[in-house]
Write a protein that binds this DNA or RNA. Sequence first.
DNA 1: GCTTAACTACACTGCACGGTGTAGTGTAGA
DNA 2: TCTACACTACACCGTGCAGTGTAGTTAAGC
Lengths: 212, 212
Amino acid sequence: MTAAKPTREGSAHKRAAILGAARGLFLAEGFDRTSVDAIALRAGVSKRTLYDYFGDKQALLIAVVDHAADSLMAAIRRTMAETLTEVTDLHAALLDFSLRIATETFGSVDYLALMRLVTNESGHLPQLRDTLMTNAPEEAIAARLAEFGRQGALDVPNPRVAADHLVALTFLLAINSLGSTISADDPRLRSILDEGVRAFLRAYAPRPRAAL
Amino acid sequence: MTAAKPTREGSAHKRAAILGAARGLFLAEGFDRTSVDAIALRAGVSKRTLYDYFGDKQALLIAVVDHAADSLMAAIRRTMAETLTEVTDLHAALLDFSLRIATETFGSVDYLALMRLVTNESGHLPQLRDTLMTNAPEEAIAARLAEFGRQGALDVPNPRVAADHLVALTFLLAINSLGSTISADDPRLRSILDEGVRAFLRAYAPRPRAAL
DNA sequence: GCTTAACTACACTGCACGGTGTAGTGTAGA
DNA sequence: TCTACACTACACCGTGCAGTGTAGTTAAGC
């Protein structure tokens, strides 16, 4: 799924170093402001090797986003399995989930920052559009919300919309209010996520059928 | 409030032309990808004049954002006065408000796109931070929501949080789902705003005190 | 020791772009 | 007509940077 142009496909270690360096610099400086020389320097790799591995600065960006998407999906699946099993206290479960996803190693916040970067900074990369237009994270969350709906813990006639709303009330709002650099222990982050989850549950709490 | 470096302060018409051209190109291509020559060409002005007016590419960006913020605030105030007066049908009123703000001449969507651009593309402009960190739009909306709360039409213990949630469920979600280029008649936009307003009202509808 | 492959160091090209300096043009007022 | 001004057209500079070509180094396998 990854592997943009691994012309030589050398040691995975070097590949990871390059991806990590590129991700960090792209997030901190933006795509255009990040020079390939800086990435190579930070990765401890010669510029030539970088080009042999990825072929192109744009291809490197695609690889970074691809890798981030995979990481995020893995984190979501793992965290969901660990936090979103209980139906007893949905607020605690959803808040735990949001907090962990937001702050976990390369969580959704960095992912969203990358998305913004891609969407705004280079709005003309057909390859990227394909990669990131899958909305896999939202779909995964939607599936879980649908499950809660089936169990009667939520009222979600349209799970995908509900998932979008949950994401908007938590991650989207967090990254919009705070910058792209969010520290895990920032009290504002916890506050935003908490309020967001609260509002989400108020909007999607099961209500007596007669009320409508 | 505007006026970054109007070294010469010539005809307001030329100034507006430059601002408009810059805004359009910044939104379409991003800040770094937009050359000053392109802006001058599109504005029908010599590059030299552009520099005489604004002094600097960064100063031009600041002026653009400043102007956008002013426009948006004016639009919000005007539209709020025209749509958010009725308490009878809050859903219709809020949806109308959202739709008009989102699609109006330089609505919140473009504003948010500019914010993203600024935040991500050049994360090191102290001047810009000051300009856009006011959160004036959210504050204005919060004030109106508080008013609704006083009238018993909504249950908003914390108006500012409620305003953030409304914005997240509508504009933020819209710009995140659709690109920065949103046509006013895109049915998806209306759908997103409608669902967002619905969820917001479910979350902030007045509820019997006994229920909690 | 020899070959092969991965990699580095480094020089180099081409280009795009931000910003400046200036000569010249059109225009309005005295 | 002269002056002042706003503006254009254009040439120009410096620089940063993507991408390439290559000679040389290291290490592994034979």
